[in-house]
């Protein structure tokens, strides 16, 4: 028996947990097609609605960018946060728990593993949508927008870990909650319109989801004329603070709920 360092175990766990996700991409190509087709059709439908309403041209840009970002949010919610419910169901969660690894590493592995599919999906929405509707972006903001995007992504995944801790403990109930919250969150985070339109209180509340501010900042950078909710600099700063904030909260919540779950027998899979 050799006892390896926590850091080594962390990275090996991330790679190992990502592996079946990557394999799934290869071995279930047909499934991936449908998996991608629906969100794309969803975004494009929204574009057509705006076109029918003769909305300003920018709005088409909002939808396309929102659709691309939605792909990442859905990945966080459905491929990461809720995954613990499945893992509990077949006993895999027990094996993750008793191994000398951490839930953070397992969750990060899930996220990394589905990154390829998600990025392709988001890319297809962005490229296809932009070409189809002739959306032009302010190329000057591109570099800054990529920076904001990466920051937003980091914050989203940390939030995902925080949510996952709930699934560790609540299982089914948390699942229903996630389903119930999905549409309101999509709406409130301004996926299809600038978040400014919601008024400051609602938009402020919606800003708890990093996607809201991140997306708004990217739109301001790439689509000139976007109504300003908060200036880009401040939005970026808030998202940057959300990264460590959610990371620390997730760590605390995972630790706390693991102990609660051990106490109440929630990590155990019963076969009878």
């Amino acid at each position: 028996m050799t006892q390896y360092s926590p850091l080594r175990i962390f990275f090996k766990t991330v790679v190992a947990r990502a592996y079946p996700r990557v394999i799934a991409t290869w071995r279930q190509v047909a499934w991936i097609f449908f998996d991608m087709a629906f969100p794309i059709v969803g975004s494009l439908a929204m574009v057509l609605v705006y076109q029918g309403l003769h909305a300003p041209r920018q709005y088409l840009g909002f939808v396309v960018m929102g659709g691309a970002m939605l792909a990442f949010w859905q990945n966080v919610l459905w491929s990461m946060a809720t995954q613990f419910s499945w893992d509990r169901g077949n006993g895999t969660l027990e094996l993750y728990t008793i191994a000398p690894t951490t839930f953070e590493a397992v969750l990060l592995g899930m996220a990394v593993g589905s990154m390829i599919t998600t990025t392709i999906r988001a890319g297809v929405i962005l490229v296809a949508g932009s070409l189809l509707f002739g959306i032009s972006y302010a190329s000057g903001g591109a570099l800054a927008a990529i920076g904001v995007f990466l920051l937003t992504l980091a914050a989203l995944y940390c939030l995902g870990m925080l949510l996952a801790s709930l699934f560790l403990f609540y299982g089914r109930e948390a699942w229903h909650l996630a389903t119930a919250l999905q549409e309101p969150v999509n709406f409130l985070s301004g996926l299809y319109f600038p978040v400014r339109a919601l008024g400051s209180y609602v938009a402020g509340g919606a800003s708890l989801v990093p996607m809201t501010l991140g997306l708004d900042a990217m739109r301001q950078l790439l689509l000139p004329g976007t109504p300003v909710f908060i200036p880009v600099g401040l939005e970026t700063t808030i998202v940057a603070i959300q990264v460590p904030l959610y990371a620390v909260l997730a760590g605390v919540a995972l630790r706390f709920l693991e102990t609660r779950a051990r106490s109440e027998g929630k990590l155990v899979t019963r076969w009878e």
């Binding site: 050799t2 390896y4 360092s5 080594r8 175990i9 090996k12 766990t13 790679v15 190992a16 947990r17 592996y19 079946p20 394999i23 799934a24 071995r27 279930q28 094996l95 993750y96 191994a99 000398p100 690894t101």
Partner: peptide, 18 residues
């Protein structure tokens, strides 16, 4: 389920840092 026997075992070995 989609993993092969060897792959699945390797996955779990990594959680221990092997």
């Amino acid at each position: 389920g989609l993993l092969r026997v060897r792959e699945q075992l390797w996955l779990f070995s990594q959680l221990y840092g092997m």
